Amino acid sequence: MPIISEAQEYHEEDLFVDLRRTFGRRLFLKCEGFNFAGSIKLKAARAMVEAAEASGVLRPGSILVESSSGNLGVALSILAASKGYTFVCVTDNRCNLATKQLIESVGGTVYTVTEPAAEGGFLGARLRLVRELCESDERYVWLNQYANPNNALAHYRSTAPAIAARFPDLKVAFIGAGTTGTLMGCARYFKEKRPDVTVVAVDAVGSVTFGGPSLPRMIPGLGTGVRPPLLDRSYIDDVVHVAEAETIRACRRLAGRGFLFGGSTGTVISGALRWLDEHAPGEELTTVAIAPDLGDRYLDSVYHQGWVEEIYGSAALADAFERPEEVAMMSGTGGAR
C-alpha cells in the first residue's frame, strides 16, 4: 500500500467487479469510489485545482466556489482543506444530508438552493447563485466543472487508459453523463486510441443533456437541467436514457449481492443491460461500465424503502433481489460462461 501525506494523493485505479454472476452479462464495473473523497470526482477536482494554481487564478486567500450535486463538492472540500483554501459548495435540496455533512466536516460551507429557476431548473438556480457570489467578491474562484477542459482531461489521462490496459479486448464502454467530464475524457481517448470501442453514454430520463425534455429528477449525479458546454456529441456512438425507478432496481439488485453502489452506478448498469439486450443479444462482448461512487451516501434515498415507495411506488422495489440465474434467463444470455 502507498504512503501518502495529502488526502488527494490516493485513488484506487485498478479495481473492477465482474457482474456476470449478478446480471448474466460480460459486464465489468470500474469502481471509482475508493479514495478519501469517495468518488471519481476527486480526479476532476484535482486536475482543475492544479491547473488554476498553475495559471495563477487560484492563489492564497482565494475562495473556491462550485455548483455540485454532491460528489465534486466533497472532493473540492477535501482539496481545499489540504491546500488551505476556503470552499463554498452551492447545491440544491436533492443533495443528501450525509454529503452536506461531509463537506462541512472538513471546513466547507454549503449553500442549498430550494427553488428551481424558470430556465434550467435547479442547476440553473445554482449557477445563478455562483455567479452572484463571484460578482460580490473578487476572491471567489469558480472552476466551473461544466465547461472546464481539465474536468475531461483528467479522465483522458487516467480513467480511460486504465480501462484500456485492463481489457485489451474491450468492445463497449458505458459511461454516465453528468457534467460529461468523465464521458468526454473517456470518449475522446477511445476514439483516438481505440476506435474499435463503442462508446455509449447513459443519461437519466428528464435530463436535457442530449436534447430530451426537462423533467423532475430526485437522484443526484447523472443528468442536467442545462446542456453541459463540455459535451461534444461527435465522440459518442449511442445514448441510453434510464428512468429513476430502473436505477433503484439495479442498485438494490447489486446490494443483494453485497455491493452497495451509488445512484449513478445503478443508472449506468441499467442502461448498459438494456443496450446489450437490444444490440448484442446472446453475444459475449467484453464491456465495461464506470461506477462513480459507493452507496453509503444514498442510505436515506435509494436504499430507504419508505423513500422509494413514496416517490416511485412499490413497483420500483419489485424483483430487486432476483437470483442471478433468473436474471440470466430473463436477459437471454443463459448465464455466465
Rank of each mutant, 00 (worst) to 15 (best):
N93P: 08
N96E: 03
K100M: 10
I103H: 01
E104R: 15
V106L: 08
G107A: 05
G107N: 02
G108N: 02
Y111K: 13
T112A: 03
V113R: 10
P116H: 05
P116V: 03
A118Q: 14
A118L: 14
A118Y: 13
E119K: 10
E119P: 00
E119W: 09
E119S: 10
E119D: 12
G120P: 04
L123P: 01
L123S: 01
G124Y: 07
L127I: 01
R128W: 11
R128N: 11
R128M: 09
L129F: 15
L129H: 15
L129C: 11
L129T: 13
L129P: 11
V130M: 08
V130L: 00
E132T: 09
L133G: 02
C134L: 05
C134D: 00
E138L: 13
E138R: 11
E138D: 13
R139H: 06
R139K: 13
Y140S: 04
V141I: 15
W142R: 01
W142C: 08
Q145W: 12
Y146C: 04
Y146S: 06
Y146K: 12
N148A: 03
N151W: 06
L153N: 15
S158E: 13
S158V: 14
S158D: 12
A160V: 09
P161I: 09
A162H: 14
I163P: 01
I163F: 00
A164V: 04
A164K: 06
F167Q: 09
D169G: 10
L170F: 04
A173F: 14
T179A: 11
T180M: 02
G181I: 00
L183Q: 04
G185K: 00
C186V: 03
C186F: 06
R188S: 07
Y189C: 03
E192C: 11
R194A: 12
P195S: 15
D196Q: 15
D196I: 11
V197I: 06
V197D: 03
T198D: 00
T198C: 11
T198F: 03
V200Q: 04
A201R: 14
V202T: 06
V202I: 12
A204W: 07
V205H: 03
V208Y: 02
T209H: 05
G211S: 08
G211D: 11
G212L: 08
G212Y: 03
P213T: 09
P216R: 13
I219K: 01
G223I: 11
G225W: 08
V226N: 01
